[in-house]
Nucleic acid binder design. Structure first.
Lengths: 192, 192
DNA sequence: TAAATTCTGAAACGATTATTTCAGAAATAA
DNA sequence: TTATTTCTGAAATAATCGTTTCAGAATTTA
């Protein structure tokens, strides 16, 4: 009897995500979002919710995509060590490839400290990422490709936090060589 | 003939800084600032300027204080290696000691990517910090306390970027032990 | 075709934004 | 005291904020 939803929600979420990505949560207005999503303001509120709910969907979608890509990448390598090296150097390339910040990092520093819901979501995302990384690190240790005196979870955390530092450096200096060198230094340190 | 300025500007800047520190630039309103600074709105605009100018003064003041403290700390150590170790472990303690974010990091991720003036200022601050760190690292190398096959400037950058990663981890997990362990891992890596 | 439901666009909402204005109180120096 | 200048508080400004409302067009199933 009734008319049904015309737009693809995921598609719209992705457009919104790009706006948040560029401007950050607070600097993004509903007008910006309506314009970018090419969706009716009423439809937005009716089907997705308010600004905060939309943002939550965006960071979930952002992470899910990143995680999917990551798992594919690691699966392509027989050796866990090689997978880690590929993963790290790809991250270094990714950091210098886009001039906007990183939605995840931006969110952690701008929103997470004061927004419990966002913090919890980012926390969950981060745990999934770290756990996956730790499993790969553990595999490298088990296969004798890596020094196993160190805790795998700590190593994973160490790798993940490095990425954030690199992004900070790149935002300020926009020097790709620096990022490359730091990634090489990390790899060197990890594999002793 | 004329009446003179009654308030201490530095004092007021520091109060404003604390508000930006807690809420970030975009989430802070002029009303918040006027309330916290206990200053007249007109006086604020007449003597300091608009929100952006006030913010610039805040991040300059923030960095100047941090740098002063840092130099004092390093000066207290005969050995450059010991100074570095003290510096790194103090930073780890500092990160877990306050629940608000870090004004510097927050600014880099939230504002710097889209605000040229802020980015330049943060860039300058960062260079001063890294240069000072690099000098200390070089001293440790010259004194044979440290492996000198690595570039001192790169090492300095590597140390500085680590701090940001730790803060990210602490915002999410609020786990002091993790930060302690990562700082110990960094120290271990740096001094081979 | 007719009834049912949803989408759409625009307008309206009240609250808040950063900034400016201005009359008068306060303090200074002659 | 008086003239001069600045500080102060409150009000006004115009723009924008996130959100809601609503009449009507569009689409669907019966």
């Amino acid at each position: 009897m009734a008319r049904c939803v015309e737009f693809n929600e995921v598609e719209k979420i992705e457009k919104a995500m790009n706006v948040f990505w560029e401007k950050g949560y607070n600097a993004t207005s509903m007008q910006d979002l309506v314009d970018a999503m090419q969706i009716n303001r009423s439809s937005l509120y009716n089907t997705i919710g308010d600004k905060h709910q939309l943002f939550m969907k965006c960071i979930r979608n952002y992470f899910d995509n990143a995680m999917l890509e990551l798992k594919e990448k690691v699966a392509q390598h027989e050796s866990a060590k090689e997978a880690l090296i590929k993963l790290i150097s790809d991250k270094a390339d990714w950091i210098v490839s886009c001039d906007k910040g990183c939605l995840g990092m931006k969110t952690i520093f701008e929103i997470a400290p004061d927004d419990c819901e966002v913090r919890n979501q980012m926390n969950k995302n981060n745990d999934v990422f770290i756990d996956f990384l730790a499993i790969t690190v553990q595999k490298a240790m088990d296969d004798g490709e890596m020094d196993d005196t160190e805790d795998a979870a700590l190593m994973a955390e160490y790798i993940a936090t490095s990425f954030t530092g690199w992004k900070q450096s790149y935002i300020l200096h926009q020097n790709p060589i620096k990022i490359k060198k730091m990634s090489e230094f990390l790899i060197k340190n990890i594999f002793k």
